[in-house]
Amino acid sequence: MSWTWSAEPDDGSVDLAGLGLDQQFPSQGEAESWLGEFYPGLMDAGVRAVSLFEADRKVYGPMPLEPEIT
């Protein structure tokens, strides 16, 4: 199975080309590690939340990329 990230909502307001969201990962852990490294660039590009998919099944999300303020 492949694991992928998707911008949520993908309403076309953010140019997703070149952000890496088209990558496929062999495991959930590798997908989550990638996000941990690259989420600042996604936020800079205007992505506010992502969802994780295993093939066509949504595993979780949308998950905000901005830190929670407590």
Rank of each mutant, 00 (worst) to 15 (best):
M1R: 14
S2P: 15
S2C: 14
W3I: 15
W3N: 07
T4F: 01
T4Q: 11
W5M: 12
S6D: 13
S6C: 12
S6P: 00
A7Q: 06
A7H: 06
E8A: 15
E8T: 08
P9R: 00
D10C: 13
D10M: 03
D11Q: 08
G12Y: 07
S13M: 05
S13D: 03
S13R: 10
S13L: 11
S13Y: 01
V14R: 04
V14P: 09
D15F: 07
D15N: 12
L16A: 09
L16T: 07
A17D: 09
A17K: 12
G18H: 06
G18F: 08
G18S: 11
G18D: 08
L19N: 01
L19A: 08
G20V: 07
G20T: 08
G20W: 03
G20H: 04
G20L: 05
L21S: 06
L21M: 03
L21C: 10
D22L: 11
D22W: 02
Q23H: 10
F25L: 12
F25S: 07
P26I: 04
P26S: 12
S27C: 11
S27Y: 04
Q28P: 01
G29N: 07
G29S: 09
G29E: 06
G29K: 07
E30N: 06
E30I: 15
E30K: 15
E30A: 15
E30V: 15
A31T: 06
A31Q: 04
E32T: 15
S33L: 11
S33W: 04
W34P: 00
W34D: 01
W34S: 02
W34Q: 02
L35Y: 01
L35N: 00
G36M: 02
G36K: 07
G36A: 12
E37I: 00
E37D: 10
F38E: 05
F38D: 01
F38L: 01
Y39A: 10
Y39V: 02
P40K: 02
P40A: 02
G41T: 00
L42T: 03
L42V: 08
M43I: 10
D44F: 03
D44Q: 14
A45T: 02
A45R: 11
A45N: 06
A45S: 15
V47A: 04
V47T: 07
R48N: 10
R48I: 12
R48Y: 09
V50A: 00
V50H: 00
V50M: 00
L52P: 10
L52S: 06
F53K: 06
E54N: 10
A55V: 15
A55T: 11
A55W: 12
A55P: 01
D56V: 09
D56P: 06
R57Q: 13
R57G: 03
K58H: 06
V59F: 02
V59P: 02
G61S: 01
G61Y: 03
G61C: 09
G61M: 14
P62Y: 07
P62K: 08
M63H: 09
M63A: 08
M63F: 11
M63D: 01
M63K: 11
P64S: 13
L65Q: 12
L65A: 12
L65K: 03
L65S: 11
E66F: 13
E66D: 11
E66P: 00
P67R: 14
P67Q: 13
E68G: 09
E68K: 12
E68S: 08
I69N: 13
I69F: 12
I69M: 13
T70M: 14
T70Q: 14
